[in-house]
């Protein structure tokens, strides 16, 4: 939410445009991320579909929504941020790095799932969500540090 607030202050796409982008980017991002998760081996049978859908909305809200609002439909911008990881400016740092962190965290979060400890948190998507949240916050902190360091360098 920090991202959202900062975004509205800095770049200011009009509030209507921002909401329009957010409405579009949330389901599209969710769809793409759900497909990716299923390819990674998330359950896609009917009985799990609801959980998977909720999880998709969540990760989309973290990864795709902020980026969607800021970047809009520009493919080259998306490529620059997500394929090359070359963010420019404070705003993009605070979008790009937490998004990467969330994805990587979710990836690590999937590790304990096959273990047979039979704990409730091992169920899909609980630990993946924990990993995602952890990665996201780590990314936030990292991006803050990077922004600080960069601003120092610039001032020097």
């Amino acid at each position: 939410m920090y991202t959202l607030i900062s975004l509205k202050q800095r770049r200011c796409p009009s509030i209507w445009e921002a909401s329009w982008r957010s409405i579009l980017s949330l389901p599209i991002g969710a769809l793409i991320l759900i497909i990716a998760a299923v390819i990674f081996g998330a359950p896609w049978e009917l009985e799990h579909s609801r959980k998977t859908a909720y999880w998709g909305q969540l990760i989309s809200a973290i990864v795709a929504l902020p980026a969607g609002i800021v970047l809009g439909g520009s493919w080259s911008e998306w490529l620059r941020l997500l394929a090359f990881t070359r963010p420019r400016g404070v705003l993009e740092y605070s979008i790009c790095i937490p998004a990467h962190g969330a994805v990587i965290g979710a990836w690590f979060g999937a590790w304990p799932m096959p273990l047979d400890w039979e704990r409730p948190w091992q169920e899909w998507p609980v630990c993946v969500t924990y990993g995602m949240a952890g990665g996201f916050f780590a990314g936030e902190i990292l991006s803050a540090i990077l922004v600080l360091v960069n601003s120092h360098e610039k001032s020097d």
Partner: peptide, 30 residues
């Protein structure tokens, strides 16, 4: 080293293969 991972080796292998696939996809996009 863990029995549960041996039991699910197929998923484990798919997971890593897909991870490499996504990394490659990223490079292809670059």
């Amino acid at each position: 080293l863990s029995n549960s991972f041996i039991l699910r080796e197929q998923q484990v292998v798919t997971f890593f293969l897909v991870s490499l696939g996504f990394l490659d996809l990223r490079m292809a996009m670059q």
